[in-house]
């Protein structure tokens, strides 16, 4: 058994009497692709926000590589190796595609506060940035404005930017959402490819994608993890089947989008 890289213990988040994340115990193993599935409103994005420090937990604990994360600010968590993407595409629209990736690379270089230097110093990052763009198939549009890209390519750029951080743990929130059939295939392969040597925790609705690349799947429903296991285990779990298809659960139809 591989070791745990990220773990939560009884992690909860309440919003004014409403519990979005309810005593979640999650264990993500090093090197795995771990998928988080569940109907809309189940609390997946909120869980991501807790794991990355964008929201403070109401209670419970988060451990990354055996260390508590609770006192760190979101930017510090990112620096420690947990890098997230967002459910809605998050690129820097008024920068070029290349500059988007260079922005992720330049902080490490330590020049981000240099207001007196020309941005030509960033040219040193070009090779590395182009490599990253190559991996997502965006070299041909490197000098285009990020805003001008179609949606699928924006998501690919986002992935390249996330990779530029060389994260140990990538949190991807619905990376294939809103993509056409071909883009989904491409991004799925890409995730599989970049997951080598890293750990990925991803929210994904597309069961084809999940079954193809996930090592472990956790099912979240109304803030609770109701099952964790391989695709075969989870998909035959009676509780999950009831949540998704159950004849007795009328809300299942409305919730599962």
């Amino acid at each position: 058994m591989t070791q745990e890289i990220l773990g939560t213990r009884r992690l909860s988040k309440h919003f004014k009497g409403f519990t979005a994340v309810n005593e979640v115990d999650l264990s993500v193993r090093k090197g795995h692709i771990h998928a988080l599935v569940g109907p809309n409103g189940a609390g997946k994005t909120t869980l991501f926000n807790l794991l990355t420090g964008f929201m403070t937990p109401s209670s419970g604990e988060i451990h990354f590589n055996g260390q508590s994360m609770s006192t760190l600010r979101p930017s510090q968590i990112a620096q420690s190796g947990i890098v997230r993407s967002f459910q809605i595409s998050a690129v820097f629209g008024s920068l070029s595609v290349l500059d988007n990736v260079r922005f992720a690379l330049q902080r490490e270089m330590g020049v981000s506060f240099f207001f007196w230097r020309s941005d030509r110093v960033l040219n040193r990052l070009n090779d590395r940035a182009m490599e990253l763009l190559e991996s997502v198939g965006l070299t041909s549009v490197a000098d285009h404005l990020a805003d001008s890209l179609p949606y699928g390519r924006k998501r690919a750029l986002e992935l390249a930017t996330t990779l530029a951080m060389n994260p140990t743990l990538m949190l991807l929130d619905e990376p294939t959402q809103g993509m056409g059939y071909e883009d989904v295939d491409r991004v799925t392969r890409l995730i599989k490819q970049v997951a080598a040597g890293r750990t990925v925790l991803m929210v994904e609705h597309n069961m084809k994608v999940v079954s193809a690349i996930a090592d472990t799947i956790s099912v979240l429903q109304r803030g609770r993890v109701i099952a964790t296991g391989t695709y075969e285990e989870v998909s035959t779990n009676p509780q999950v089947m009831e949540a998704y298809l159950g004849p007795t659960s009328r809300y299942g139809e409305g919730d599962a989008a």
Binding site: F86, V91, F103, R117
Partner: peptide, 28 residues
């Protein structure tokens, strides 16, 4: 004009474009 075309200027543009994303890339 130099500030605008400096690494710092680039960072500012990115932060203005999408602050949450900049944070998630380790920026304060």
């Amino acid at each position: 004009a130099r500030v605008v075309r400096s690494p710092f200027g680039q960072s500012m543009i990115a932060i203005k474009d999408n602050q949450a994303r900049a944070i998630s890339l380790g920026y304060h």
